[in-house]
């Protein structure tokens, strides 16, 4: 990959501009740069500007090392040294009309903001659930921290309700992570992310480690919940075909930059950036014809 010098901004179509004009922003990132302060420093995210709209699913596609996870973690202020956000603004536009400067948040204010407004579903549910406490204890932990006024009774009800929402039998509340299948663990993670009714959920490869059939069921569940509760999703994956099926818009990242940003329909029909075309051609169609062109490599 050759070094890129100037960032002209992502390629987008007119259809995309028209689509976006009808939407209300919920999270705006402007000129975000994130650097890993190692030797030599790695600029993982380079001057990225991105707007997430209320209720939309925005796909963030790219290969390993392109900066997609770093960017998403930056949106929720989850980056830790050696990663540092060297520049940029992130603004959260709350449904009640208040605007929050996410970068300026600190201490209690940051703790109150995270998970309540923007929650996260991490990649490996295997490693994200605490193995030595029950599912109930982990779900209740979220509620006792963020909703201290809830009664014990109400908390218990909410936990059961959350599991039901994601299609897990509430009887499993007393189970430990190792007693659940991979799919169930990921559902529990989604339940936990939904506990506070966030307006934005960031999902980092939430289904990558799962079998296709289970993956499909979970995606279906996410889509159903999105339609019901109207939260916006940033969905990070390298699996472009999957994104094309679920996302409203897709941002394609390479080497820390968004090279193309468009509606899923447009991105599939008329990919403008060479890299998007290359990514799309990396997935042969299941039912269509395919011949691998050796010259293209």
């Amino acid at each position: 990959m050759s070094g890129t010098t100037t960032a002209p901004g992502p390629l987008s179509s007119a259809a995309h501009a028209a689509h976006v004009a009808r939407l209300t922003p919920v999270l705006t990132a402007r000129d975000v740069s994130i650097e890993y302060e190692v030797d030599p420093p790695v600029r993982a995210v380079r001057d990225v500007s991105l707007t997430l709209h209320r209720g939309e699913i925005l796909g963030l596609a790219g290969e390993s090392g392109c900066g997609k996870s770093t960017l998403a973690y930056g949106l929720d202020r989850l980056i830790r040294p050696p990663a540092v956000m060297t520049s940029g603004q992130v603004t959260f536009h709350d449904a009640d009309g208040t605007e929050t400067d996410v970068v300026a948040l600190d201490g209690d204010a940051l703790r109150a903001f995270r998970w309540d407004k923007v929650s996260m579903v991490f990649q490996g549910a295997m490693n994200s659930l605490n193995p030595v406490i029950s599912v109930r204890a982990q779900l209740e932990d979220v509620l006792t921290t963020h909703r201290p006024h809830l009664t014990k009774q109400r908390r218990r009800e909410r936990c059961a309700e959350l599991l039901q929402l994601v299609g897990v039998d509430p009887g499993r509340l007393d189970a430990f992570a190792h007693e659940l299948s991979g799919g169930m663990r990921q559902r529990v993670m989604i339940a936990m992310a939904m506990a506070l009714d966030p307006q934005v959920m960031i999902m980092d490869e939430p289904t990558t480690a799962l079998d296709v059939v289970v993956q499909r069921e979970i995606l279906r569940q996410i889509m159903r919940l999105r339609e019901t509760f109207g939260f916006a999703v940033v969905f990070i994956t390298h699996d472009l075909p999957l994104l094309l099926e679920i996302a409203d818009r897709i941002a394609v990242m390479r080497a820390g930059e968004i090279v193309e940003l468009d509606t899923a329909e447009q991105l599939y029909a008329e990919p403008q950036h060479e890299y998007t075309q290359q990514l799309l051609s990396s997935f042969p169609s299941l039912l269509g014809e395919f011949s691998y062109d050796e010259e293209r490599r």
Binding site: Q215, R216, L219, P241, L244, A264, Y268, L280, F283, L287
Partner: peptide, 13 residues
Amino acid sequence: AAAPDPSRHGRLR
């Protein structure tokens, strides 16, 4: 049926 297919974009939604 579970395999994503790029030509069927928006299907799940």
